[in-house]
Amino acid sequence: MFYPNSPQTSPQLTQIPYGQQYAMMQRQIQQPYHPFATTEPQARLYPYHYQGPIQQEQGGFITQQSTAASPQYVQMRVTPVDQSIMSGYPNQTANGSSSSSFNYNIHPQQQQQQQQQQQQLRHHAMPVGSVPLQDDRYRKQLIVNYLAPDVTSTDLHELFSRFGELDGARIIYDKQTNMSKGYGFVYFCHAEDAKEAVERMSGYEFHGKWLKVGYSTNPLNIVPSNSSPYVHAGSRGAAG
């Protein structure tokens, strides 16, 4: 039997160049792979992502010199942007860049009308829970959420009447099932009393439920100042 490094198959040491006398086997001759043993700084910083320098080929596509990437890492192929796409944008300079302001050559009167329309939209648009300043009635009506099913309009009136005089209180019921929808409205005579009720009743436990109280901004629920107070009856038909 002959071994790869046996004296019968191995040459004389004098015939082997210096430095390879003890590297006779194939696994010894093959050098191990060192990912950080390279002179390129990109490979030292990113050993798993770097795959060699990027070269520009004919046709405008950018390719990489090395083989496919590892399945664990996804390499994105980048193509140059066609400058003709950006030619339609206004205020574009000769080098292809555009300024931040756009001039669509709008007539001054049209621009003024658009600004007025935007101001009107901001004036009428009102986020949930906010209180408008032009109508004091919005500051007097509250919406009470997360009410228990057994709470009546009379219970709601008695709960909030300790903060001040009320114009009314009612629970909203479903017309088909005649069941409470879980929320109601309270109408105060003074805005200061309503503000105190919002601050003190939010998070209050009532009939096993934690109440959420806020201003009601729905104009359909506003009680006119010259109208008669609501009837605080315990029956659902009268309260709904």
Rank of each mutant, 00 (worst) to 15 (best):
S130R: 11
G208L: 01
R162W: 08
K175V: 03
N105E: 05
Q72W: 15
Y18K: 08
G184M: 00
G52D: 08
P224E: 04
D174L: 01
S101D: 03
E40A: 11
V81W: 14
M24T: 07
Y33I: 12
D167R: 01
A191F: 04
L159Y: 00
S202Y: 06
Y183E: 00
T67G: 09
G234H: 12
D136Q: 05
P90T: 09
P219I: 01
S98R: 11
K140C: 02
P80M: 02
G208Y: 02
T217F: 02
I85R: 05
P35Q: 08
Y48F: 10
I85L: 10
P53N: 11
I54M: 10
P224H: 14
A238H: 13
G182I: 03
K209W: 00
Q109D: 04
Y138E: 02
Q51K: 12
A69P: 08
I16H: 07
P149R: 09
Q176M: 13
V231H: 03
M76I: 15
S84R: 09
L159S: 02
A125D: 11
Y46C: 08
S227E: 07
Q113Y: 12
P229C: 05
Q65H: 12
G182C: 15
S153C: 11
S100F: 14
V231Y: 12
Q31L: 13
P32M: 06
Q20C: 05
T177V: 07
G237Q: 14
G52C: 12
H157F: 08
Q134R: 10
G96W: 11
T67M: 12
V151P: 07
T9N: 11
Q111A: 11
L220F: 01
L159Q: 01
D155M: 04
Q31T: 07
N218T: 01
P47I: 15
N105K: 05
A194W: 01
S225F: 05
Q119F: 08
V186W: 06
S227T: 11
K181F: 01
N103Y: 08
I172K: 00
A148C: 04
T177H: 03
T39Q: 04
T39G: 10
V186R: 00
Q176C: 11
S6N: 12
P11S: 06
V151G: 03
Q118D: 11
I106E: 07
R162K: 10
G129L: 03
V74M: 05
A239F: 09
G96E: 06
Q116G: 11
Q28T: 09
I106F: 10
Q111N: 12
L133F: 15
N91W: 15
E205C: 11
Y104C: 06
E199F: 04
D167A: 05
Y18F: 13
I171E: 01
V213Q: 01
V198H: 03
V131H: 10
H49D: 08
Q120A: 12
A23N: 12
T9K: 02
N95S: 11
